[in-house]
Simulated assay, not measured.
Amino acid sequence: MTAPTPALDPAWIARTVAVALDEDLGPEPGRDVTTQSTIPPESTGAADLVARQDGVVAGLVVIPEVVGQVAARLGLPMATVDQRVPDGTRVSRGDVLAVLTGPVQVLLVAERTLLNLASRASGVATHTRRWADALEGTGALVLDTRKTTPGLRALEKYAVRCGGGTNKRMGLYDVAMVKDNHVVAAGSVSAAVAAVRERYPDVTIQVEADTLDQALEAVAAGARFLLLDNMATPLLAEVVAAVRAVDAEVELEATGNLTLDRAREVASTGVDYLSVGGLTHSSPILDLALDLEPTGR
């Protein structure tokens, strides 16, 4: 497994926020024609970031960067961010997650960008927490995949960690994953594994297997991590037992056609991981709101 970076890279946050603000305001410095028309630049106030749903929060760490960049673009003082809960916290509807204080123009211009990022991340964390809870006590962990929103992979994989999940590979560069098309192109599982080992001897090799024979061939070729794809529970249990009999140290992952209802059943086969693309490609947002306090004008 790839060791995940526990926190978001500040440089990545800065780049991502800049792109998001360009989308909303137009090229830097940009403008908000409504807010800048109706709110005097000297007006100050406070706003509460509030959960409108129960869930697990993530992405709150991006908020200071959002309000900081907005203040710089508008030429106004920096707003302060009093974060009330850390990322990864279970929250209830109505909980105040952070209080932002400063120029009202900054708060309102920053609103949608910070909500987009935090709501998206919190949705992923909330969904992941359901899987982590379902697997609790089984010894199996839930993994994410590369099925992420372009440009937001770092945030979404961070959110998976906040929800109790585990990151798999971060991209095509850090782990070799031999799948069916690679096997077709190389001629066999063994040939594909050998080709990767020769070209990139320093990387971990993972191999997808659809059948017992493929799994055993991959282990014989030296694979230390197998993706057992779209297997019914009885076949999955058979493959796990057969592989463990050959090499008990090989890591095994169930993937494909997984649902929360099946999570513990699949884990009972002895796999180490369940990989769930839906953590990042199908999680609904967690509804968050930024409410300006009445004294803000």
Results as ranks from 00 to 15, higher is better:
104 V>R: 10
296 G>K: 08
126 T>H: 02
100 L>R: 09
52 R>T: 08
126 T>L: 00
215 A>P: 07
244 R>F: 02
154 A>V: 06
72 A>H: 12
276 V>Y: 00
10 P>F: 12
113 T>I: 13
82 D>H: 07
50 V>Q: 05
141 L>T: 14
33 V>E: 12
146 R>A: 04
133 D>E: 15
63 I>K: 05
218 A>P: 05
8 L>K: 05
176 A>L: 09
146 R>S: 02
23 E>Y: 06
297 R>G: 15
91 V>W: 05
9 D>Y: 09
59 G>S: 09
51 A>H: 04
259 T>M: 08
50 V>P: 05
251 E>F: 04
149 T>D: 00
228 L>M: 03
76 L>D: 08
238 E>H: 13
137 G>N: 03
143 L>P: 00
19 V>M: 13
167 N>S: 08
136 E>I: 10
85 V>G: 06
60 L>E: 06
120 R>M: 15
133 D>S: 14
191 A>S: 12
29 P>Y: 04
38 T>D: 09
177 M>C: 09
207 V>L: 01
267 A>P: 00
25 L>F: 13
272 D>I: 00
199 R>I: 10
294 P>V: 05
153 R>I: 13
288 L>N: 06
241 A>Y: 03
191 A>C: 06
4 P>M: 04
78 M>A: 14
224 R>N: 12
58 A>Q: 06
59 G>W: 06
109 V>G: 04
209 A>Q: 00
85 V>R: 02
227 L>W: 00
194 A>V: 12
267 A>K: 01
63 I>G: 11
190 S>G: 14
269 T>P: 03
5 T>G: 10
57 V>I: 14
29 P>C: 10
42 E>C: 06
181 N>F: 11
8 L>V: 13
227 L>V: 02
2 T>K: 13
14 A>L: 12
119 S>A: 15
154 A>P: 02
221 A>W: 02
234 P>T: 04
230 N>P: 02
263 A>E: 02
155 L>Y: 07
104 V>M: 01
139 G>M: 10
107 L>S: 04
65 E>M: 10
175 V>F: 00
220 A>N: 08
28 E>S: 14
71 A>I: 10
128 T>W: 03
138 T>R: 00
133 D>G: 12
283 S>M: 08
